[in-house]
Simulated assay, not measured.
Amino acid sequence: MATESSATDSMQAQLQQGGILGGLLLAILGLLALVTPFVTGLALSILLGAALVVGALVHVAAAFSASGARSVVWQVLLGVVYGLVGISILANPLLGLTTLTVLVIAFFAVEGVVQLGWAVTGAGSRLWLGLSGAISLLLAGMLLVGFPATALWAVGVLFGVDLLVTGVSMAMLGRTEGDVTAAEVPTETMG
C-alpha cells in the first residue's frame, strides 16, 4: 500500500510540476507575442495558410474513397478551394493577416450583438451579459475605426493575451493542485 501511495504521490508531483512549467512557458510565449504582435500575426497567418493547404490535400485524398460521383466532385471542389485560399495566404501573409483581422472584427461585432440581445430578452445575469456585449462591440468598433492599421497588431495582441492568461491559469492550477494534494490526508483501507 505504501509503495502504491508513494508512486501516486510521485506521479501527482510530476504532473503538478509539468502543469506549472507548461503554464509558465505559455505565459512567456504570450509575453513574446505581446512584444512582437506583427510577427506573431504573420506567423499565425502562415500557419493558417499551411493548414488550409494540408486540408486541401486531405479533401483530395478523401475524394478517392468517396462513394459516388457527386461526393468525389464535392471533395475535389473543396480541395481546390482550400488549396487556392491556402496558397494565396502563403504567397501574401499580410493579406491573410488582414483577413484574420476582419474575421476578428466580425466575431466581436456578432458576439456583442448576440450578448446584448440575450441580456435584454434573457434571464439570469443580464448585467454581466450586457457588459460583455458592450465590451465586444467596443472592441469591434475600435478595431474597425483603426483598420487597416489594426491588422498589423490586433491578431498578435489578442493571441498573446490569450496565451498569457492561459499560461498563468495553468501555472496557478498546477500550484493549487499541489496545495490540495499536500493538504489531503491519505486514507488506507482496512483489509
Rank of each mutant, 00 (worst) to 15 (best):
L77V: 13
L77E: 02
L77Y: 03
L78T: 09
G79F: 05
G79L: 04
Y82N: 08
Y82P: 03
G83R: 03
I87A: 14
I87R: 01
S88H: 08
S88G: 05
L90Y: 06
L90V: 10
A91P: 05
P93D: 09
L94S: 11
L94R: 12
L95V: 12
L97N: 14
L97P: 04
L97A: 14
L100G: 11
T101L: 01
V102W: 13
L103Q: 10
L103P: 05
L103N: 10
L103F: 15
V104G: 01
F108M: 13
V110T: 10
L116D: 03
G117M: 08
W118R: 12
A119T: 01
T121V: 14
T121A: 15
G124Q: 03
G124F: 01
R126Q: 12
R126A: 09
R126S: 09
L127C: 00
W128L: 15
L129P: 03
L131Y: 04
A134C: 08
A134D: 03
I135L: 15
S136N: 12
L137W: 10
L138T: 09
L139H: 01
A140E: 00
G141D: 04
L143Q: 07
L143C: 06
L143N: 06
L143Y: 10
L144Q: 06
L144K: 02
V145A: 13
V145Q: 05
V145C: 03
T150P: 07
A151G: 02
A151F: 03
L152A: 15
L152S: 11
A154G: 03
V157W: 10
V157N: 04
L158W: 11
F159P: 00
G160V: 01
V161D: 02
V161N: 01
D162R: 08
L163K: 03
L163N: 05
V165N: 00
T166A: 13
T166R: 12
G167K: 00
S169C: 06
M170H: 04
M170T: 01
M172Q: 11
M172D: 04
M172Y: 09
M172P: 00
L173E: 08
L173D: 09
L173N: 09
G174I: 01
